[in-house]
Computed example of a mutant assay.
Amino acid sequence: MVLSTLALTGSAYAGTGVGDGKGGDTEERGGSDGTGIYAAAKIQYSGSVTTNGSTGNVTSSDVNWTPPPCWYAPYLGAKDFKEKMSKDIDSQMNAPGMGGHAGAALNELQRHYEDDYGWTDTPGYKDYNVEKDGEGMFWAAVENPNEPDILKRSSCNDIPFWVDNGEAPPPQYEEAITPQILAALAYQHMELPDTKVTLAPAATTKVNLPTWAWLDKAVFDEVQATAAINVPGFNIQATTTAKPISLKLEPGTDDAQTYPASGECTINADGSIGEPYAKGKSTQTPPCGLKYLRSSGDTTFKLRATITWEIAWTGTGGAGGDLPNGTFGNEQAVTVQEIQAVNR
């Protein structure tokens, strides 16, 4: 049942991860605000998460997969919900222009929570369920602030509903928060390290000279981010883990060759990618690298290095599985010079 005339100002909101930009342990806490109101929809993030909860660096390789645009989560206990709803309804009832259908809808909503007035698939409540205060919570819709499509964000538009502690939400609420949804949100907030490969020669190379490229395991390892909701009677969490599996090199010009020819360098047994250049290898073909066939002139070529990450998750109750592979890349400037010959 949807009554769009009700504006639950500040009703439920998504929490934001707080990061230091360096992939260290970070966390934003939910819980009581000092008045007994539990900000249960505030998701608690930890691990390597992006600053201020912005969209993560990782991009799904599956164009058809996106994190959820909205969900339902625990909101308020019965007494706190009654206080807030009563104020909201009274305020809107007394607002100009609230006669006719709008006023009737608000009156119906008030009866739903106060007088046990329900609909076919939506039972009503007696006095906001205050006799069950502490035994459960009202759940409400939460919009994902990182979803650009406002219609998708607002698609969870059912009015708040009651869930007893330890019980699952009614089956019709398919978007109710789960460990799998938390895993997708952790995926979205995950912060990955910059993909700056080591080159030899470094920033300046020569035409037709093989350039070696590699990433050391010591500075490039798996990344984890955790999302959790912890309130009375409801505690779930999910940890998303990303492991690098390959490096793709895009030289920034068609006048270049890559090694291997696909430009995809797979991960080695020790977790590194490519092989460091060593003295005496100048005539060898690098296992991971590239060769420019013309000079960059007075400018540079923008070499793009993109890592593909294999991403999986584990969560409360032994849940878990795979998520779509993710990618994240950076550009770095490469100067390519002509080899100067000396005529005698």
Rank of each mutant, 00 (worst) to 15 (best):
V2D: 12
T5A: 12
L6T: 02
A7Y: 09
T9W: 10
S11D: 07
A12N: 03
A12D: 00
A14D: 06
G21I: 07
D25Q: 11
G30C: 12
G30T: 11
G36Q: 02
A40F: 06
Q44I: 08
Y45S: 01
Y45D: 01
S46P: 00
G47K: 03
G47R: 02
T50V: 15
N52M: 09
S54T: 12
N57S: 14
T59E: 13
S60E: 06
S61K: 14
V63C: 05
W65Q: 08
P67D: 05
C70V: 00
C70K: 02
W71R: 02
L76N: 07
A78Q: 08
K84Y: 13
Q92P: 01
A95E: 08
G97A: 10
A102Y: 13
A104W: 10
Q110Y: 11
H112M: 10
H112S: 03
Y113D: 04
Y113F: 13
T122W: 13
G124R: 09
D133V: 03
G134C: 07
M137H: 08
M137C: 05
A140H: 03
E143H: 07
P148V: 06
S154L: 13
C156H: 04
I159A: 06
P160L: 03
N165M: 04
A168W: 05
Q172H: 13
Y173G: 00
E174A: 15
E175T: 13
Q180M: 12
I181G: 01
L182N: 08
Y187P: 04
Y187N: 05
V197D: 02
T198Q: 12
L199G: 00
P201N: 10
L209T: 15
K217P: 01
V219R: 07
E222D: 14
A228V: 00
N230K: 15
N230E: 15
F234N: 03
I236E: 05
A238C: 10
T239H: 10
A242G: 07
I245E: 14
G252S: 02
T253A: 03
D254S: 14
P260H: 02
A261W: 02
S262P: 02
G263K: 05
C265S: 01
N268V: 07
A269R: 09
D270K: 04
D270R: 03
G271M: 06
G271W: 05
E275I: 04
P276K: 08
P276R: 07
S282V: 04
T283I: 01
L290E: 03
L290K: 10
L293F: 03
L293Y: 03
D298S: 13
T300I: 00
F301Q: 00
T306P: 11
T306Q: 11
T306K: 12
T308S: 13
T308Q: 15
W309L: 07
E310A: 14
I311Q: 07
T316F: 10
G317T: 10
A319H: 06
G321L: 10
L323C: 12
P324F: 08
N325S: 15
T327D: 12
E331K: 08
T335A: 13
E338W: 04
I339C: 04
I339R: 12
I339A: 12
I339S: 13
Q340E: 11
V342C: 06
R344P: 07
